[in-house]
Design a protein around this nucleic acid. Structure first.
Lengths: 119, 119
DNA sequence: ACATTACATTCCTATATAGGAATATGTCAA
DNA sequence: TTGACATATTCCTATATAGGAATGTAATGT
């Protein structure tokens, strides 16, 4: 089996760095495609294709205005990723604590060594 | 250009559902490969390959114990994803508020319509 | 030394890109 | 209608999988 399609879910869509860049750019306010092209420095067809992927997984909203299309990040669609990654928060907290504790033990150990040497 | 390698960063590594499953399983406590195989229901070589990807991007730690290898999720490596997705939190809050406001306006509108009809 | 257990690695193939080039579609203005 | 502009779509190719099958490797018990 090959890799899952980029359009299969938000996780796959967001794996591409340029798409993350676009999402960041479109989070603040809606922009037309030309502005996005200028912002990311890819040529227009590539940007349109990335926007197509983002559209298909619901990561952006589009609105037509004359010959322009105004895109905007749909932050709601990023939320599942935030929540999944957030389930690991307690673990990295624990890991940090363990590292800190070890560091403190180490410091005590070192200062005891230092005192011993002074004698 | 083809898609970026799954080993290029945590975003790409985590795009694969089985790898997310493995990370969740290994978050609580370290496990040997056989246990992971039983847990995810893939055959051993596939699991080993997924573990290889997770290893290469630092999403898991390994420890050898005799002929076993004990894997464990390195939650720290998931943190960047949590933080990136978290930058959109204020936007989905705003979006929620807008939806709520519209809903409330709509409800007022509806009840006014209802009152009007009653007359 | 040898069989066994626990994993990792290699080989294979169908599939899906990402970007470049070229072209199609749709909308406005004169 | 015609032309210019804005965006989307199609065609092309090199590349990278994910999983299945087969094989390699390292550690243990006897």
């Amino acid at each position: 089996m090959a890799r899952a399609a980029t359009t299969s879910d938000a996780f796959n869509a967001v794996a591409e760095p340029r798409r993350r860049q676009i999402l960041t750019f479109l989070a603040v306010d809606e922009r037309e495609v030309g502005e996005i092209v200028a912002a990311v420095g890819l040529d227009q067809p590539s940007v349109s294709k990335h926007l197509g992927v983002l559209r298909e997984v619901g990561l952006v909203h589009v609105r037509r205005n004359g010959r322009h299309r105004l895109y905007r990040t749909n932050a709601e669609a990023i939320r599942p990723l935030y929540e999944w990654t957030g389930t690991f928060e307690r673990y990295w907290r624990h890991q940090l604590n363990r590292v800190k504790e070890r560091a403190e033990v180490q410091m005590v150990h070192n200062s005891e060594e230092a005192s011993a040497k002074e004698k």
